[in-house]
Amino acid sequence: MPDLGLEVLWKGKNLIRLLGGLGIALRISLVSVLISIGLGTLLGMVRRKEKGLPKVIMRLYLEFIRIMPQLVLLFLVYFGTTRSFGWDLSGETAAVIVFSLWGTAEMSDLVRGALNSIPVHQYESAEALGLWEKQIYRYVILPQAVRRLLPPAINLVTRMIKTTSLVLMIGVVEVLKVAQQIIEANRMSSPNAAFGVYLAVFVIYFCACWPVSLAAKKLERRWR
């Protein structure tokens, strides 16, 4: 059995430090998810009504965000805007800005899709039954739309968590960076640390994302 470098994890506080890195990644994704859900829901509802120039601008924004790799967006905000506007952004703030922009775009799409998927006759029948607009949304449309919205929205959370691994590239100290530090520090005593530590990082990310996507799958199956 070759030396797998797993013993490094138990040395000192290494495992705790890795989990601390995960904490930062989760904090970034949690903040971004909350902002995205709020703004995305609003935007999704507004987008059904708008016409003309605002629609075109909105469309361009959404397409640009969707088509650019998130890493490019991170670079644009972290290196690009700081340079052109002369402000000072920490890596974490830049990450939250980018992930919120991206998440809002995705979320607004999901909301719009969920609302559009409700057949028109649902509105018409509710109206025929004498419900007001508010009641129509409260009792007829929203319960159905939320069911369609929730599974993909939860999936968005896992995508967000996975994407936070990119913040390594703009100098935020998260799981991967901590892993690099640990490997570097133990270079002499356990040269194979890279295997064990990166394996641990792999497992840590899996443990963070898997329960969330399981929940999404379960909801989807139950509500079908």
Binding site: P2, L166, N192, W210
Partner: peptide, 24 residues
Amino acid sequence: VELSRNTPLLIQLFFIYYGLPKIG
């Protein structure tokens, strides 16, 4: 399928590129 869908590509690459050489 679960493993590949629930971990970021960056981590997978790090593991393949820096981790796997340690076991040959």
